[in-house]
């Protein structure tokens, strides 16, 4: 699984950081950054929650 944040859409709501702090980090430019681009299966529920509830639907999960 690969995690991507769409730079055009992210507005720093940080819902992803709440769901999966291991994977996402909000930086001073008010954008969320992916810390683990290929998270393990143990993190899948958290990452899926992040993608599902992102207010801007800015997170894509790509199966590999």
């Amino acid at each position: 699984m690969r995690v991507i944040v769409d730079r055009d859409r992210c507005e720093g709501n940080a819902r992803c950081v709440l769901a999966a702090p291991e994977v996402f980090e909000l930086r001073s430019d008010d954008q969320s950054y992916v810390l683990i681009e290929h998270p393990g299966e143990d993190l899948r529920p958290k990452v899926e929650e992040a993608a599902r509830f992102c207010p801007r639907q800015a997170i894509s999960l790509i199966e590999e």
């Binding site: 055009d8 859409r9 507005e11 720093g12 709501n13 940080a14 008010d30």
Partner: peptide, 16 residues
């Protein structure tokens, strides 16, 4: 829409 929104959205983030 994305382009119009980017004109102002930095002023509306949780941090701002």
């Amino acid at each position: 829409h994305v382009r119009l929104r980017r004109l102002v959205n930095k002023g509306f983030t949780p941090r701002a």
